[in-house]
Write a protein that binds this DNA or RNA. Structure first.
Lengths: 337, 337
DNA sequence: CAGTAATGAGAAAAGGTTTTCTCAAGATAA
DNA sequence: TTATCTTGAGAAAACCTTTTCTCATTACTG
């Protein structure tokens, strides 16, 4: 009954459960039940079917399975973050959380093109994704595509979501608090804050926390997210008369990088004379800075993990409370502070 | 016959071709043929079915379609490039090329974990991907997972492939040539080359082209892929006695960055006194360097595009010649040279 | 020993689409 | 008017799996 085997199996196309059933000499339904540990049958039969399936390398066709179960074990990740600086860690977290559940992820980079976004959303829906995670590069902007009233659950991660949805974001105020408290614990008292454009929600949150803890010793320096702004801001501060800061808390790692360069050019030592803390913990940047940069990590991987588990829960019909969830940042101490 | 409409349609679940057929008052087969522009029927019927499908928002279920056609319109992108510095542009190219064909991309980051790689490959095969593109961060290393004898076509992009497969890679020698020739066109004669570990194939290729064009004016400085190495190497060269270089060709943008910093610290002006060219054109780095970095772009997006079109061709059974295809680099001129 | 319960396994339907085959009606040719 | 051709449209099978239902056999219970 088990004769033939390899020669007979998979003659045309992939190996199906029909092949398993044929080789095992049972019906298709029995084979299915054996493999899924459902139904009633002799333990011996079940084991034999399983063994044969293993031997001939049977793997169930997810398309057929999905057609029936209405679960494709597939989700879509939509992002407008071209460089993937924020999205990649989020993606890593999602993937890590979902791979155990057999879920794969479609990554769709849509730039800021609404038409492209719509195309990708349609393609994902056609492919019956179990859910969609929307991600981005900014907490206070939403993707250029309408995700309300979709037939699948949508979760937002590091991008602005609709009020009645589940949204995950970093707790930037808490993260800024971590940085400033660390500087104060180091004995620093005059802490400057050089950051990005005030139009960014994150910037206002971080600056708010900074002011609350550090007091109004220094005016917040708003600018742009670039090294050159960090450089320029330091030049401005140290060009002024009066007492100089003994620490700089920067709005991101690029600004911090520029600031450190400027300080070195002024002959100021980091961290001996001035401590510097960055934000984002963009490792490839933070580790290469001289000295390596102490920075606030937004925990994007954990954020992705949570988003992944949440969209899965929604897809399985488990109830999830709507609202914004702030996930904590943590401080990665290197040598600049 | 077209009455009811919205109320009747999609009462449970998504809208299927059954709904279209019912509303249009035709059979399912007629509806299908109308929508696919196949079969024989009155032009009027065809148009009516199409209109109704549009009106009630019918979109065919890709799972069901794929089950029959054995095409899932899905491919998998496998990579061990954690930061996505190389993979993301490749991915962008793939996606751009394939979105027009309705193909979506599973992104699977497998680190360097063979077990994880196997899991992802199995998951992709279960989902009946039409093909797989393997990508990485290094031309002379292959992914830690066996992709031979898979039931779907595999194309390699920016990673080492099997001899009988299709492999796309950048033409590093040509790219290095571009850089050195540009420097010589600027009148530079003593060109130094600071680069990564000699164990990298790319390093040897680039160094080879450099030596061929620039001659043996300066010994190649092999090191690591870091800013600090760029910094250190410049310090070494300018610490030596004898004539100094008037240009530096760096193995990547991070090294170039370190080199420029070191030159500035020595009081040497870039590009007035010394021209510097980087490699990779890692925009987020190259644009922020002071001065902005002239760099060799490996054309990874084009590489991804080619890989995408190739895997699609193979999936459709069109013949593709095996072998390694070198794609040209181009020079992005900014201000450092 | 007759009747019921438990067990093992198969038949068939379902899921949504495409494709091939069949059939009826109307049109043309003889 | 009868035989053949064309046209329009539907029935059914196929893709692969899961699940529910049914049935036959064996093992008990009274």
């Amino acid at each position: 009954m088990e004769a033939g085997l390899d020669q007979e199996v998979g003659k045309k196309g992939r190996i199906t459960i029909h092949d398993v059933a044929a080789v095992a000499g049972v019906s298709i339904s029995t084979a299915s039940k054996a493999l899924n540990d459902t139904g009633r049958m002799g333990e011996e039969t079940r084991e034999r079917v399983k063994r044969i399936a293993r031997e001939i390398g049977f793997r169930p066709n997810a398309l057929a399975r999905g057609l029936l179960s209405k679960r494709s074990f597939t989700i879509g990740l939509l992002t407008n973050d071209t460089y993937g600086r924020f999205t990649l860690p989020v993606m890593a977290g999602i993937s890590e959380a979902l791979v155990d559940h057999g879920v794969s992820v479609f990554l769709c980079a849509i730039e800021d093109d609404p038409a492209l976004g719509q195309i990708h959303v349609d393609a994902m829906l056609d492919k019956q994704v179990d859910g969609i995670i929307a991600s981005g590069k900014r907490l206070d902007r939403s993707l250029p595509v309408d995700l309300s009233n979709l037939p699948v659950p949508v979760v937002y991660a590091f991008t602005e979501g609709t009020p009645d949805s589940v949204t995950f974001r970093s707790d930037d105020a808490q993260g800024a608090g971590l940085a400033v408290e660390w500087l104060m614990k180091l004995g620093r008292r005059r802490i400057a804050h050089i950051t990005g454009p005030e139009s960014f929600f994150s910037v206002r949150e971080r600056a708010g926390a900074y002011r609350e803890i550090a007091g109004d010793t220094e005016p917040v320096m708003y600018g742009v997210w670039s090294e050159s702004w960090g450089h320029e801001a330091v030049a401005k501060i140290w060009g002024r008369n009066g007492e100089k800061p003994d620490a700089v808390f920067c709005g991101n790692d690029q600004i911090a990088r520029g600031a450190i360069d400027a300080l070195r050019e002024c002959g100021i030592r980091v961290p001996e004379d001035v401590s510097v803390v960055g934000f984002d913990n963009w490792e490839i940047m933070a580790e290469q800075t001289r000295p390596p940069l102490t920075s606030v990590d937004m925990g994007l991987k954990a954020l992705g993990r949570e988003a992944g588990l949440t969209v899965l829960a929604l897809a399985e019909g488990r109830p999830v409370e709507a609202g914004v969830r702030k996930l904590p940042c943590h401080l990665v101490v290197r040598q600049s502070a």
